[in-house]
């Protein structure tokens, strides 16, 4: 086994969920117990998370709008916002490093609005 690239790309929770679902649907496997276990457990986790309500289109629209805000967020930060859509200013402060310095109060509010617009069901992660 040779690792040629440990991080070819990052995946959003939604993408992982999609691939695992396709994998689960092509069930014909008998001897792959480990695969069945991890697929099942990971899907359980993902279906409990906000990515369940997301789609390729909403994520794309969200990212385009965030980019248009021009607040110079890193890819990782955008990914974290997709995986765990922030619902409060405190939440944004956690996801984005030095958010007090890098973002103005207006930008934080705009971000929250964008989240609410594209991922309306985000708060349901708590229920």
């Amino acid at each position: 086994m040779e690792i040629s690239n440990p991080c070819f790309s990052v995946l959003s929770n939604y993408e992982v969920m999609e691939s695992l679902k396709t994998l689960k649907d092509t069930k014909k496997k008998y001897g792959l117990r480990n695969l069945a276990t991890i697929t099942y457990e990971t899907l359980q986790f993902l279906e409990d998370s906000p990515c369940k309500q997301q789609s390729r289109e909403t994520i794309h629209a969200f990212l385009t709008e965030v980019k248009a805000l021009n607040c110079k967020l890193t890819t990782t930060e955008c990914l974290m916002m997709v995986n765990d859509p922030p619902t409060s200013a405190l939440h944004i402060q956690l996801l984005i490093e030095d958010s007090e310095e890098r973002l103005t109060e207006d930008q934080v509010n705009e971000l929250l609005q964008i989240v609410a617009k594209h991922f309306p069901n985000a708060p349901s992660e708590n229920n």
Binding site: P6, L20, L23, G31, L32, N34, L35
Partner: peptide, 23 residues
């Protein structure tokens, strides 16, 4: 595909992480 999944699924590769499934 089966063989790779049999080998890696639900295993940890050193300095890589927990392997989930073949993409």
């Amino acid at each position: 595909r089966d063989e790779i999944n049999r080998k890696l699924a639900n295993k940890v590769l050193l300095n890589l992480g927990l392997c989930i499934a073949l993409k």
